[in-house]
Amino acid sequence: MKDLLYSSILLAMVMATAGCSDTPERSLPILGNREVVNGDTVYPTVQAFSFVDQDSQTVNNASFDGEAYVVDFFFIHCPTICPKVKVQCKRIYDRFLDNPHVLLLSHSIDVRNDTVAALHRYAEKLEIKTAKWHLVTGSEDEIYGMGDDYFSVARKDTTLPGGFDHSGRLILVDKNRHVRSFCDGTDPKEVDRFMDDIDLLLKEQYSPKK
């Protein structure tokens, strides 16, 4: 019995030491220009928005209240990068399907063609649940106006195939409306790293503190 006690103590000590020697864990920065107001550091937050999703429901900041979400810009009749980005978004969707703290928000930048009905059909083809992944449309100015907050390009350009210019970037927003990570959504390896970042954020914001 004494032996067991000693070995347990020894084991506990080894484990404690192992804990000490761990390198400090990587943490995600808050992206964007911070300001100092009255001695307090203020981080940029995503502005207030209100759009309509594939089920004709209003989607605004409150829709993501307390949860993290992944943002991108796309349009349905996009022949070039959008299908690749959607393949990667679907990977993220599948991986975090059972985690209520991760949602997805895709903005259509083709407000003329991508009506609610068109988005609804598109969502059916993607085989996704609206509550998890909102495909939204809204006023053109408001949608294009979100680009800066999400460090993304979203604008019309008739010289390009499809008629729009947009980055295939994915952006991770935390529950406090801070942008925490982004990646090139056309590159599966980048998206692997991005999903690790999502895990890290979940650990930071949703794991019980020790």
């Binding site: 299908p83 690749k84 959607k86 393949v87 679907k90 598109y122 083809k125 993607l126 056309t186």
Partner: peptide, 15 residues
């Protein structure tokens, strides 16, 4: 593979 996926399975009923 970007669209048709590494295993050639496509995506939902989109691709």
């Amino acid at each position: 593979a970007g669209c048709h996926v590494e295993g050639g399975t496509g995506l939902g009923t989109l691709i």
